[in-house]
Every structure is written in structure tokens, then in C-alpha cells.
Nucleic acid binder design. Structure first.
Length: 357
DNA sequence: TCTGGGGTCCTAGGACCC
DNA sequence: TCTGGGGTCCTAGGACCC
């Protein structure tokens, strides 16, 4: 039995945060723009969230330390992230894109997968549908996006990244393996820095190298992930475009301006993180059972401790007390702390609190 | 280079139950 | 006395995504 061939879009907004900032502040257009941590004349902590293409030309890319960005491009416009704005714009864009698909899956704040199989009869129709979507986003939001079209999510995602900004790349099923083969293995979804390094050790650099490698050896070395990885390298991905359902956890974390061993200050920060988390849980009518606290020491060593409560709750007092108890173990030594975080999970949705026996 | 903050999913050992 | 097998839940850590 043959399934109908699928046609999947991956839409990716171009340098989303800085693009939105340029739209709202046209005076920045044409200059390098960086959204991220406060650079503090090169002494700031934190990283670059997004940089526009002018800044990228100077070497300023997402994820690099903001202090390094400052050295590379001191003349850039540095802006703090305005998440409420980005979320509002994102919601509008997703609303537009959703109409084009039978199945829709938002991926992060500025990307989405669309299953348009039932709406197009061939790739030519798919291309004009994608152009229409790009045009509507440009007209209504004055923002550009790049779209990849392929027989599955994996190919579509890699295709959208192939030509940027304002790109449109089509990779048909028969061309998929040849399209992927020369690309670095890191382009595959789920192959990050660590996996890339392990693959390099085996002499695997490109997706083609991986596709030719003995799948049983890969499966043995990487487990379930390895099996999926080898299929990916051959352009095979059966995962469905599916609507993300309920949220599984809510968390907040913060990095101190300076590392500190001051227990009072750390507990105060913990309380206010807990307050933000509880407020969101209440806002979403979610009751949680598990609480996790995260600590990162000055040497970047990171630990988590969690506790599953005997009851469900979304009361601030319960969260603060549990978080404080969990954090205590980390305050006994005098080590300087860089970051703390609070997370709640194991949700039960409901209108009123239920106590489990 | 000196490394944010929001998430999801997987693994592995141990407790505990039948 | 020394010993199953299956299942679920909890905890901690880690990889990866944007």
C-alpha cells in the first residue's frame, strides 16, 4: 500500500528579532543591529540573540558572547529583546500561515511546518502557494521569510536554510539524497555540537558520509537517535506535522550581574523567579506537582534538584518553600553562583485545586 | 570566545509494587 | 537461602532546538 506523497513547507522568518526592530525603528535600517544582552562597553555577560545581516558581515552571529560582539562591531545598534512585541508579531504571522495548511506546527517563535499535501497537486503548485504566503506576510507584516519545500519536515527544514534571506528552495523527493549529501552533518536536525564531534571522530563529515556508513554501527553508538540519524541522512523522515498541544513545563532563570556566594541575595532572586513562574501557572490555569531548581556555579558547572510533591498546587507559598528547600543543598558550600532557575512541571489542568490522597 | 533564557525529549539507576 | 521479570515513578544529567 502506497501512501500519498506529502508536500511539506518549512517557513523561517529572516533574522526575526532584528527585522521586527528595524520595522518598528526605521532609523536603524542599513546599520548593523544586534538584539541581546547589554554589551556594557564590552564587559557585559550574555549572548547575542539575533543580529541583522549588516552585523553578520562583521562576524556577529547568534549565540556568540555579547562582549565579543562588542569587540567585533562596537558601532552596531545594541537593543535589549522586546519579547512581548516579538510574540505579538509572531502570533499574527502564525495566524496568516496557518490558513495555508491542513496541518500546522509552530516551531519556536519564528518558524513553522505546514503540511499542504491536500492543497497542491504538484511542486509547481506548491511553489506558487509558497510565493503567495511570502507575499501575504510581506504585505501584512512588512517582514520577509524563507521557505523550504520538500517531501518531509527534515528536507523542508534544511531547504529553508539553503537560501536566505527571502529565499524559496524546492527539493523534490528524488533529488533529496543528492541535495543532502554534500552538506555538513551538523545541518541535520538533532545533530548538535557533541554529536558532530563524535561523528567527526569516525571520519563522518558530510551527510553523504553518514548515509554511506554502516547503519548498525551508528545504531550501536548512538542508540535510538542513531537509527533516526541514519534515516535522516538518507532523506527519510516520516514524522508528521502536528499541532503542539499543551505546555509541559514553565521555567524562569537568571544570571547574576556578578557571581555571588551571598545566600540572602540568591534566595531573594529565587523567590522572585518563583513568583513569575507561579503567576504564569495561575494564568494558564495549570497545577503542578514537580518543582526543579537549577544552579550554575562560576565555573559553569550546572546542577538540578527536583521534588515531586504529594499534592498538586499552583500556590506561590508551596513553590517558594519547595524551591528554597531544594536550593539549600547548594548554599552550604561557599561556592560562587552564576545562575539560578526555577521550573515547574507534571501539570494537571483544572479550575480548582485537587489534593491527591 | 567565556558562554542567555525559554523549552522538549531521552537515558539510566533506584525505589517500589505485583 | 539467594533469587525472577515486568512495570511505573522519581531523580539527575545531558543533548538539542530557537
Amino acid at each position: 500500500m502506497r501512501e500519498k506523497k506529502r508536500v511539506i513547507f518549512h517557513m523561517d522568518m529572516d533574522h526575526f528579532y532584528t527585522a521586527v526592530e528595524e520595522r518598528e525603528h526605521p532609523e536603524h535600517k542599513g546599520k548593523p543591529v544586534v538584539v541581546g544582552a547589554d554589551p556594557k562597553e564590552g564587559k557585559g555577560r550574555g549572548v547575542v540573540s539575533t543580529s541583522n545581516y549588516e552585523a553578520r558581515r562583521a562576524g556577529v552571529r547568534s549565540g556568540i558572547p555579547i562582549s565579543r560582539a562588542w569587540k567585533l562591531c562596537p558601532e552596531a545598534v545594541y537593543l535589549p529583546p522586546n519579547f512581548p512585541l516579538y510574540i505579538r508579531v509572531s502570533n499574527e504571522i502564525m495566524e496568516i500561515a496557518r490558513k495555508y495548511a491542513d496541518k500546522f506546527e509552530q516551531w519556536g517563535i519564528d518558524e513553522a511546518f505546514l503540511d499542504v499535501s491536500a492543497r497542491v497537486k504538484d511542486y509547481a503548485e506548491a511553489e506558487s502557494l509558497a510565493k503567495q504566503l511570502k507575499r501575504e506576510v510581506k504585505e501584512k507584516e512588512n517582514l520577509t521569510c524563507s521557505i523550504g519545500i520538500g517531501p518531509n519536515k527534515l528536507i523542508a527544514k534544511i531547504a529553508s536554510d539553503y537560501q536566505k534571506p527571502d529565499g524559496l528552495t524546492i527539493v523534490k523527493e528524488d533529488d533529496a539524497e543528492a541535495f543532502l549529501a554534500p552538506l555538513p552533518v551538523r545541518k541535520l536536525l538533532w545533530v548538535g555540537r557533541k554529536t558532530e564531534a563524535k561523528l567527526k571522530n569516525r571520519g563522518i563529515f558530510t551527510i553523504g558520509d553518514l548515509a554511506r556508513y554502516d547503519p548498525t554501527v551508528i545504531a550501536e553508538a548512538f542508540g535510538v537517535m542513531g537509527t533516526q540519524m541514519h534515516l535522516s541522512a538518507r532523506g527519510i523522515d516520516r514524522s508528521e506535522v502536528e499541532t503542539r498541544t499543551e505546555v509541559k513545563s514553565i521555567s524562569h532563570e537568571t544570571t547574576f550581574e556578578e557571581d555571588t556566594a551571598d545566600a540572602e541575595a540568591v534566595l531573594k532572586a529565587l523567590d522572585s523567579l518563583a513568583a513569575e513562574v507561579a503567576k504564569e501557572a495561575v494564568g494558564q490555569k495549570l497545577f503542578f506537582k514537580a518543582v526543579t531548581v537549577k544552579v550554575r556555579y562560576e565555573n559553569f558547572e550546572t546542577h538540578t534538584r527536583s521534588k515531586t510533591l504529594a499534592f498538586i498546587t499552583n500556590r506561590l507559598q508551596d513553590l517558594q518553600k519547595t524551591a528554597r528547600d531544594l536550593l539549600k543543598a547548594y548554599l552550604k558550600n561557599d561556592r560562587k553562583i552564576r545562575l539560578i532557575g526555577v521550573r515547574v512541571s507534571n501539570f494537571v489542568k483544572g479550575e480548582k485545586q485537587k489534593t491527591l490522597a
